[in-house]
Design a protein around this nucleic acid. Structure first.
Lengths: 223, 223
DNA sequence: ATGACCTGATACGTCGGAGGTCTTGAACGC
DNA sequence: GCGTTCAAGACCTCCGACGTATCAGGTCAT
């Protein structure tokens, strides 16, 4: 195994074993390189790789730190990976989202706070009846993010966030505007919100399923 | 932005735009570095990072290639990330699995082939009634993997594979043996398999839910 | 003619060192 | 007390050199 890969494993080991805790600062590059028995150049490759997936946070002029290791942070890297997928696998990602999002919405129905409900309502009101495509996309993302956040499961939240990444979403929405999809989306958002307000988990789940299924159906007919 | 990060983005862009396709070979390090306007060392950091998440495959003495970009391959990196999580978030991962796995099992009920059913049956038979812990863990993993694979959604498959990673699973099972969990697990596996053979999606979904919920319950009472 | 073996070219792997840039915090002057 | 300046510390980038693994093509014995 290459020395760089060894270094990755060793740093990972230090974190998993608890020798390095979230927020801890690593020894400076030259020292760590000496400790692990490799050159500074090779060590930097290891650090850069761990930095890409948000395990480490390097700050020029300051030092290198272990991130919070929050699921939210780590799964952010997922969206980076999702970006690489082409249209033929988008349907599979959407199918997973179709499983997760209704469940998350149902969970949110029993946990969401009144003020969060008000915030979502205000958000929809602000958007109006005939929003621009950009606004609708942004609002759609934010709407679902807000609901999923109220599910109380940060892993679920981050996972859905990654799956619904901007790339995928934007690509889907781009051609969707020519139909009555805008009005339909707004209507479905209202329905989901109403179900949440009623604390009706099953209705919320169903509306979320319908909501995603409509996108899925459209996408399937288009591809 | 650092030159290395730029390089990562540029390489990503080349792949996403289609300039580089799966299996393609990249220019050699020195050339690519010159093209992108940075040093070979810095480029290597970018390549190493993309290699860690299975976007690129570097082969010493040969060259650097774009991987197949299969969801299976890319989501493998997920298990690397999951390894970093500590016990307090394991429950959240398990909750997500509790959502996905029953759905996948239900999907498998209508798609799984007869020979796959026979294979699963043979697998359970081979294990016997009083297997060792190691065998049970391995079998459990393989059993669920086989079912999820039959769901026909490779993204879902890889995602569950990552979430059920060896680390998480091993940690859970280690202490589980002191109870009647072994017999119970075997019984539930049989029930799931029977439901699949009956092509009864709802029964399969329910048994899968029960199966995971029992682990969840035990874990919750232990932590 | 065929096969194993050797060898050179090629490309990635590793290293050490030299400047450059950014952050931080302490020393300084107002 | 407060803002400014400055120097130390740490990461950023680059260069050039050498090590090592792979592959292709040629050589030689069978």
């Amino acid at each position: 195994m290459a020395v760089t890969d060894e270094a990755i494993e060793k740093i990972k080991g230090m974190i998993v074993s608890g020798a390095l805790r979230p927020g801890d600062r690593l020894p400076k590059e030259s020292e760590l390189a000496a400790d692990l028995g490799l050159s500074r150049n090779s060590l930097r490759e290891a650090v850069r790789a761990l930095s890409l997936i948000r395990i480490l946070d390097v700050r020029q002029g300051d030092g290198t730190y272990v991130t919070s290791l929050d699921p939210q942070l780590l799964l952010e890297a997922l969206s980076f990976v999702v970006d690489f997928h082409r249209d033929d696998t988008v349907l599979e990602f959407l199918a997973v989202r179709r499983i997760l999002e209704p469940a998350a919405t149902a969970m949110a129905a029993v946990r969401i706070s009144e003020q969060q409900l008000d915030a979502l309502t205000a958000q929809l009101d602000k958007l109006g009846e005939t929003p621009s495509v950009e606004d609708l996309v942004a609002c759609d993302l934010e709407f679902h993010r807000g609901i999923v956040h109220s599910s109380g499961n940060s892993v679920l939240c981050s996972l859905l966030d990654g799956l619904s990444g901007p790339t995928t979403r934007a690509r889907i929405w781009r051609g969707l505007t020519q139909e009555d999809a805008v009005a339909r989306t707004l209507r479905e958002h209202r329905a989901i919100l109403a179900a949440l307000r009623d604390r009706d988990a099953e209705a919320a789940r169903s509306w979320a399923t319908v909501h995603i299924a409509s996108v899925e159906q459209w996408l399937r007919s288009t591809l």
